[in-house]
Design a protein around this nucleic acid. Structure first.
Lengths: 339, 339
DNA sequence: GTTCCATTTGGAACCGCTCCCATGAATACT
DNA sequence: AGTATTCATGGGAGCGGTTCCAAATGGAAC
């Protein structure tokens, strides 16, 4: 590896001072156009790229964001939802000249991880994927004044930047759709109830039933964990309830796929015997058999919005709205029996 | 945000020099145990974490690896394969005190991206996801002597660190299994053929057929793109071939799921009318209907091995073996009709 | 032709850490 | 006891940028 080119050499070649080169690099206005031009030419010619570490040390900014995945959300790694979120965040960062760091807070090392990655000033801000309500890392971040945007929402840590899908409404719309189709024994498979997302979707389910004057049968509420396996076993339990449900709202597509499988294994058919609606609209949803009716999350916008909020905040334009709600959309396919 | 604690203050409090504190931080042997102890106590007490930028600037190391996703592999964001790879890499990095950066080389910006992220010395090394054979970024990396491990393999850039699954063998085993079940009209849906992975799997298919004395019918080779949509449309074309195939080997599970759908839409059944085998063993594979027979990639080991190779290399223990081949495994379920 | 002010520019002091080298203390050897 | 050697420590010079401040430059206004 040849000797790294430094700002000094650029300065010398362009016959200006280091300060001026630095100003050019940082788009400082007070550089005469012809000088700026000359410096830029030398930079290009020499293929010069300023060294990140030196820059950060002097400027106290790193141009790096961190996507933090709490260990409690480790299941997310099997969920396509995740990939798409990452993709949109990466793109938003790249577009604004930031890099994205990925971190998992894994179990016991949480604390030391936190230290190493976040206190070392390696990152300018954190995007945190929705997590357990009582995740211990959240207070640490807030206490440290770490710029933070939550993807998801939190019940009582209110004045915090966050982006979320209107989970309650989305769930309600799904259940209303099932009601409209004539169902009254509607079950739900929830996510893990220490997660706010899971609670909201369950509440949307309840809300829709109550509004329609349909009572809530606790037996028809099964708890899953957002995975296929969870959906499968929750569904098996629900199938044993008497009288059995005629429709199921699963709080995620992955769980819906698991439920689908359980229903199939029990010798029943979707939607003929049981109608099924999911949540997320992950790519496989439209390729399942039958195609899955589901509540579409604007996944890409979710990530992009969160990143944008954080970047705006970091660059001195604090977003006026602290909590952004994106609207989900009911996508009607075959599994609900509407056709 | 309170004033950052520096190494100076730790030094003063522990009544030693900055040098000694630095030695303690870097596990340098020549510090008397009792002094080391004292310093560590002060560090803990003050909750001190050395600042990454300063460290990097002085030491010329960042403790950051970058996972590079070529734009040609953007489809990967809908593939669960990806999430699991990321997870295992993240874990491997964390375990060795490295952070992971995520980068996509997106289209036209490829070059400038390359500059910004890689030439700025923001990363110590790169893990690159398998890509087009002629991806322009590969030569750039090699030319810059950037420490690099390829996840996948490359046909002629040989003396490069890489980790791969034995794709050809895996494909061959799958096809041999279909042959053993009595099929002779076996089709394949390949990945995009500018990718080495896709070529290898197709070659495994051919190899198995030839070895069994079954001729290769070009009509039975459909090109997909590793996505469900691609699998779907490739399968539709294959269904029109006369005489039609009685079995299909899809070079990825996502394509197999698409193919499954196409077969179903055509009013045919798997495995009764057409036997189907996939590749990858992503989590949904076992939840499909019918459960998908597939070639399991040790996805987690793939990522972990790649990260380990790179870290070993960076830390001065260059792995003896440049190209690691991991063995895939045929997982027999329902879709091939073996039961 | 001065004076004044705004604009550009250069110099120098950091930013917080690492690491080489010199120093001094402690131990080993003759 | 004196000298050589080893080991632990401190001091200082970077690492490659940014940024404050003061100086230089060049017009405009008088």
């Amino acid at each position: 590896m040849e000797q790294q080119i430094t700002i000094r050499q650029i300065a010398k070649l362009a016959e200006v001072s280091r300060s001026t080169v630095s100003r050019v690099l940082n788009n400082h206005p007070s550089v005469r156009p012809e000088v700026r031009q000359r410096v830029l030419e030398v930079i290009k010619e020499q293929d010069y790229v300023p060294q990140a570490a030196a820059r950060s040390l002097a400027s106290r900014r790193t141009n790096v964001l961190t996507l933090l995945i709490p260990r409690s959300s480790a299941f997310i790694f099997t969920d396509p939802f995740f990939s798409l979120t990452i993709q949109s965040i990466t793109e938003a960062c790249t577009a604004r000249d930031y890099s994205l760091m990925l971190s998992m807070a894994t179990g016991a090392e949480e604390r030391s991880f936190y230290q190493r990655v976040l206190r070392s000033r390696i990152t300018d801000g954190v995007l945190m994927l929705s997590s357990d309500i009582d995740d211990p890392i959240l207070p640490l971040l807030i206490n440290d004044d770490m710029p933070l945007v939550l993807i998801g929402s939190h019940p009582y840590l209110q004045p915090m930047y966050s982006v979320d899908v209107a989970n309650r409404d989305g769930a309600a719309v799904a259940v209303e759709h099932l009601l409209r189709l004539g169902h009254s024994r509607i079950a739900t498979i929830t996510g893990p109830l220490q997660m706010n997302t899971a609670i909201d979707r369950r509440d949307g389910y309840k809300q829709a039933l109550l509004k329609a004057g349909v009572g809530i049968d606790p037996q028809l509420i099964g708890e899953g964990d957002f995975t296929q396996e969870g959906g499968y076993s929750a569904m098996r339990t629900l199938l044993d309830v008497q009288p059995p449900p005629t429709a199921v709202f699963a709080a995620s597509d992955m769980m819906a796929l698991g439920a689908l499988r359980a229903i199939y294994d029990a010798g029943l058919r979707v939607p003929d015997d049981i109608a099924l609606v999911g949540f997320d609209d992950i790519p496989i949803a439209s390729f399942a058999t039958p195609e899955l009716t589901t509540v579409r999350q604007p996944i890409q916008r979710l990530g992009a919005t969160a990143a944008t909020m954080l970047l705006d905040h970091l660059e001195g334009n604090p977003p006026a709205i602290h909590h952004q709600q994106l609207k989900p959309e009911l996508i009607i396919r075959k599994s609900c029996g509407a056709f």
